[in-house]
Every structure is written in C-alpha cells, then in structure tokens.
Nucleic acid binder design. Structure first.
Lengths: 206, 206
DNA sequence: TGGCATACTGAATGCAATTACAGTATTTCA
DNA sequence: TGAAATACTGTAATTGCATTCAGTATGCCA
C-alpha cells in the first residue's frame, strides 16, 4: 500500500476523529472549514488521492459516506457492547441495563458466540476458580438463561452473592463444584439460581 | 425510558443494521423505500417519536446524522483493532499488518492501555504458562517494544518460535522463567529477542 | 530547469436530504 | 364511544453536499 503525504494523513486522521466523536463522517465543507480551506475542491482532491491509495472509501453522491479502510478491515467484525455489573442483585439481570457499572466492547468473532440482551459481565472476586485458571480480577462474560453443559463454568447465586462454580452431573443429578481444593463445595444445583453460563474470560495485566 | 411501539422498534433496528453494514446511517428516503412508505413524512414522524423517547439522536438539517442511543452508550469507549498473528516470523512485527491472520477488537477501557501500531495478539500453544493461569488456546495481547518490568510475562523468540515466559531479574541480570514445573527453564534474557510484553489475556469458552 | 504531483482558490451546477404543511385511516384506552 | 396517539399519503420549499470545471502556486526530482 502506498503511503500518504503529511496533509493527506492529517485529513484522514481528522475524518477518523470526527467519525468516532460525532458518530458520522464529516462532509467536504466541514473538512474544509476545519482546515481553513476556502475551496471545497481542495478537500475533494485530497480525498480523491487518499481514496486512490486505498485508505478511504466512499459512495459517489452520497452524503457523509466516507469510510476509513484499515488493513485489518477485512477481518473486522461487529462489535458487541456487554454491560458490566458490579455485583448481581438477588433478582435476575433483566433489561435493567441502567444499572450497568461499565461496558466491555468485543467483536463477536473473538466472543465466539452471538451475544443477546441477556449477556453480561462480572469481575471475579475470590479464588474459588483457580483450578480452572480463573483468578481474582478477571472479567468474565456470562450468558444468562443458557442451559449449562456438564463441565461448564456457571455463576450461581449463593447467600446473596454470585459465585463461579463448575457445573457437573452425577447419576443424572446436576451439582456445582468449586475449583479450589480449599473449598470442597458440592452443592445440589437444583436449589440454586444459576445466573449465567461462562462464555469468555478477560484478564488485564496489572 | 419509555418503550417503543412495534413499528418504531422495526425502524430503529433497520437504522442499526444499515449503520453497521453501510458504515453510515440511512436517509429518510432510504428508510421509506425499505418499508415501502410512499411518504417521507411517515418516517419523519416515526423518527420524531423515537427521538423523543430517547433512543435516537440527530442534528437538524444534517444529512445522515442519525445516531442510535444505547443505555450502554455513556460507558462506551473507543474500540481498538488488534492484529492476530498466527506465529511470529524471525523478524519483528513491524507495520506488516497485511500478514495478520485475524483481528481482535476490544474497547480501550477494558484493554487498560492505549494500543499502538505495535500492539498485536497471538494464540497460546503449549502449557508453559499454566503457573500464571495462561493455558492453551488463550489469546494474548502483547505490546512490542515495551520494556518489561520484573514479573511481567513476555513473548520471546526461542528456536524460531515465540514462547511466553516470565521476565525476572536476579543480581541485576534479566532472565526468563517458564511457569511450569515440568520445564524448569531459566534463560539469560539478553541473548533473546523479546517480542512483546503481555497486556491482556482472552479466553473463549470451548 | 522543466515537468509533474501536491496543495490550494473560486464559482457554478444539480441531485440529495431534511423539513414543513395539509390531510386521512387505524389503533388505543380512559 | 370519542378523543388522542399512532401510522400513514402527498406536495413543496429550502438547504445540504458532492461534483465538476477553470485556474494558480509550490515543492520535488530526474
């Protein structure tokens, strides 16, 4: 891919910024105003060259149709926004997204499943899941309402706190197991509220 | 937040789809055409109500300025696209993004650091890092060119393969340690090419 | 040093798009 | 059951925006 001139790079950067901030691409006139150009043709010409070099796409005659082409673009997938709850209240996480404490945005390709409105995330506290290599501070993405398969990690409501356990069956009966030798828990799953099935773990370096 | 009527929801969904697919929001005429409306005012009126209920924003007189308001929006951050390399060649991962095998998109808030063009991701093979709870199949995000602090996990080039090790210093001398009792490696770091410092781990449920 | 690409000014054309106004069914619900 | 909100048709005015044509100045490089 050929490289851009300084001016062209500036313009491309400006389009990217505007795109991210305003939510839609700027018009030629807006770009011209930003750079102090008194002629639209200045912008028009720059865009033509940037487009020619493959860094930008646009549909002719379409307002605000500038789209930035990144070399990663062909891999790029839809990004899902998943609400992060600090701690889950006794009820279920319904449509109550207003209570979200934050938001994780991840592309659905990495996510490896299609998120629903019942997908949510929690920060892990405690070390009950070290056996499954999930540690304190990890962010876990869970799917509420999914039916767990044996071996899946689930979040269950125990004593008003949501806790991660491994879901297992023995003699056809489901039960939950803590993955830490210090906590040899073994709880009948039927009596518990399973809040979600684990789908993704994210760990930030500290 | 009040709820939308069926029709309003359909229109909002359509705007979202178009937005994601085409890269910019549809015009009133385009929406009308899609739904078979013969009058623009039908769309105009719907948009007015959806906007009034707080699910949509737009600037007056601005073409294609429709923006969807999500309850998660205020948490939403910029999303970074990180190239995923299958395996790193002997050289350094420079600007050679064309060789990327895939792409992970994560918001910079979750990333916890500002990605650079030298940020990249790898899929973990082998079990040399189980001690640090990083297992086979995990996706690790690394920063090339960053200087590791003692205790950081780094990717180093050993025998033409990039391998994860813990970076440590003893008597002022840096060395690398494998976090697996089966591999009691202890290599002098100076002789090795450190390809990146670990910043994030992503594990997909299987 | 002449030619070519870049970096602009200026004006004009015309479709693209939003907005406004005037109505008519249909649904909802107090 | 009757008024208000929803869900449309149709026409027109007006501005938003992209595109095109005709030039000028400047830096680069072979």
């Amino acid at each position: 891919m050929p490289s851009l001139t300084r001016r062209q790079q500036q313009i491309l950067d400006h389009i990217r910024r505007e795109q991210e901030q305003a939510g839609n691409a700027p018009t030629l006139a807006e770009i011209a105003r930003h750079f102090g150009f008194r002629s639209l043709n200045a912008v028009s010409e720059h865009l033509r060259l940037i487009r020619q070099k493959g860094f930008l796409e646009a549909s002719t005659g379409r307002a605000r149709s500038l789209r930035i082409v990144s070399p990663l673009q062909r891999f790029r997938q839809r990004v899902a926004d998943i609400p992060v709850f600090g701690s889950i209240p006794a009820g279920l996480p319904q449509e109550r997204t207003q209570e979200a404490k934050g938001c994780v945005s991840i592309d659905i390709g990495t996510l490896n499943f299609k998120p629903t409105p019942r997908t949510f995330a929690l920060e892990v506290r405690g070390d009950s899941m070290v056996g499954k290599h999930i540690i304190e501070g990890d962010l876990v993405v869970l799917e509420h309402g999914a039916t767990p398969k044996p071996g899946d990690v689930v979040a269950a409501l125990i004593d008003g706190e949501s806790t991660l356990k491994t879901f297992l069956t023995r003699n056809g009966k489901p039960y939950l197991k803590a993955e830490n030798p210090n906590y040899p828990d073994l709880l009948p799953a039927q009596e518990l509220v399973i809040q979600g099935v684990l789908r993704l773990v994210v760990r930030r370096a500290r």
